[in-house]
Structure formats: C-alpha cells, structure tokens
Write a protein that binds this DNA or RNA. Structure first.
Lengths: 127, 127
DNA sequence: TCCGTATATCGCAATATTGCGAAATTGAAA
DNA sequence: TTTCAATTTCGCAATATTGCGATATACGGA
C-alpha cells in the first residue's frame, strides 16, 4: 500500500499528526530555530544558514505553512515567514497534557534482554 | 535524491525531528491516546481499537520506541508498551520554549491574497 | 519597457514510509 | 513434546518525501 489510512481517525488526531509531521525534519527544525532568533525571515535569508537549494527550502516552508506552524506576509517582492505562536502552543499543550494525564507506570523494574539468534534486534525481554 | 541530508544539523535537531516525526502519523497519535487511558497495552490489545493489521501496528510501536517515545516490557509472551513520560515532556518543553522565546510579530496586519493566473496556489500576498 | 531579484511550481530521480500477508521466534499451555 | 498465542521480521507493492535544476510568476528599479 503506502498510503496512510485516514478514514478511522478523528480530525483532531489527523491535525495533530500533521503538525508533528511538519516538525519531523531537521531542516524544518533548523528553520524554526532560526525564526526564534530573527523573528521573521524570507527564503533567501534562510539559504545563508541552511545548505539546501532555494526550491527545497521553499518546499519546507510551504509544508510548515500548510501545517499551520508558520504564517507569512509579502512585502514588495519578499515573502517573510514567521512562527505561528498559537499553533506551536497548541502542540506543546497537547503533549504536556499527555504527560499529565497518563498514570504512573507501575512496573519500572529492571529489564533483561534476551536476544534472538537469527533476528537482528532482540524483541523478547525477560523481566 | 530523496534521502535527508544529515551532515549539517546538530544532534539535538536530529533527535527532536525524529521524535516529532514519530508522532507525525494519526495511527501513532491514536496509540498514544489509547496509552493515556490504559497505562500499558500490548500489540494485541491495540488491534481492537485501531483498524490496521497486527504487523502494521507492531511497526508503528517500533517506530515510537526507536524515537524514545515509548518503552516496553515483556511479561510472559506479552509485550506491554508504555509512554516514556520524560521524553514526551522534553518535546513538550522544547515547543513551549519556542513559544516563549520568539519575539512578537510586529506586523500582524491584514493580508490580501493575490492569486496568480496559472498557478494553483496564490503565493504572492499584498500587505 | 527591460532587467534583476525573490519565490513558488514543475519534472524528475532517489529514497523513505505505509500496509499487508507470510514466515520466524519465543514462551506458555495442553 | 506438541500446539497455540503473541510478537517481530521479511518481502513485496503502492505511495509519499526529499532534493535539485529549470522554469514561470511577480515586483521593483534602471
């Protein structure tokens, strides 16, 4: 297959996944971090910091915009991107909520690995 | 190409991207949300909630584990997964930090769209 | 008007992800 | 010991992502 099955999930789950996914690339993390320093930047500015082609950076910006993480405004011929603080906050709060709502893991005890003979990774562990 | 260029980014950027990426699929968000309710679950349990093949769910669990989001322990023949609260907190704090550290966007003014004739999406906006 | 700059889009190739069924592995139960 | 249930891994096909160069669009300045 290859295509994600979408019919089962809630809109909120899909939206949250899309936002996390847009942050799931180091170039896009680097863009976010640059935008923390410089408030708003255009595509040309970012080329000096990130060693990717202009078209590639443009695509990454587009993906962050489509996920709602970034906004932009055009002044003259320049397109300035900025971080959408509300959306970043929503993602942060969602993850913080997970931290708060899950119960304690009762069995934090030591775990022994028992590697399989033929398989690359051990997937059975004895407690 | 297709492969992400990794040589430029910091270890922290790569790690954060990996963690966000692992959350960037609605099935994995659904898994996380189920684990908030039920503390720890095995692969078989999750099959009752998520309409995917068992092998597919196992892969999603593995990806969350590889990103550090989940841990697991084996009891008998069952493999129980649980949310790694510290790691979730790290991601949440990182995003909260972005929210706090960016400066205010000075130019929050209204934006006019000016769609191009031939191109699908308007990419020039007048302020 | 014509040229240069900025940027999104297109087309392509390489690689990664998603999903499934089948097979392999392990521990427990019969 | 044999069988069963739980799980990971493998192999495959379909689709998505990543990255680049080339191109098209839009604006501002000469």
């Amino acid at each position: 297959m290859g295509a994600t099955k979408m019919d089962f999930y809630t809109d909120h789950q899909i939206e949250m996944a899309k936002r996390c996914k847009s942050l799931g690339h180091p170039a896009r993390i680097a863009i976010i971090e640059k935008l923390m320093e410089d408030d708003q930047l255009n595509c040309t500015d970012l080329q000096f910091f990130i060693p990717l082609a202009q078209s590639t950076i443009s695509q990454h910006l587009k993906e962050l915009f489509n996920a709602g993480i970034l906004g932009f405004k055009v002044i003259g011929n320049n397109c300035y991107y900025y971080i959408n603080k509300d959306v970043i906050s929503q993602v942060a709060n969602y993850l913080s909520q997970i931290r708060l709502l899950i119960k304690d893991n009762k069995t934090e005890s030591f775990i022994y690995f028992k590697p399989s003979i033929k398989q690359k990774q051990p997937y059975f562990m004895r407690i």
